[in-house]
């Protein structure tokens, strides 16, 4: 069983990738699995939002979820 999710990437995560895309994942995939598939190292992500709610790496995804990923480029 696979599922489709919608992914928005911002800032430098777009480089050599995309800004918006549909991604196929196994039915039990998490945000971390999505990053793995997109070959994005965990350290390159500062903010995860799933369906307009703040998300985590361990969060389990569902079909048609909308995921936003933003790199950590603030703070000091």
């Amino acid at each position: 069983m696979t599922m489709r999710v919608f992914v928005n990437l911002y800032s430098t995560l777009r480089l050599d990738r995309f800004s918006d895309a549909e991604v196929e994942l196994p039915g039990d995939a998490t945000v971390a699995d999505l990053l793995d598939k997109l070959q994005i190292p965990l350290q390159d992500v500062g903010v995860v939002v799933v369906n307009a709610r703040s998300g985590t790496f361990q969060q389990k995804l569902q079909a048609d979820d909308r995921i936003t990923l933003i790199p950590p480029i603030g703070g000091g």
């Binding site: 965990l42 350290q43 790496f57 950590p72």
Partner: peptide, 26 residues
């Protein structure tokens, strides 16, 4: 939440040096 929250996971593993790469790429 902190243990699974992206920025904090990054900070736990890499500390604030973790943002050098992103800022340079940006």
């Amino acid at each position: 939440r902190i243990k699974t929250h992206p920025l904090n996971v990054m900070l736990t593993h890499f500390g604030t040096p973790g943002i050098v790469k992103g800022l340079n790429a940006a």
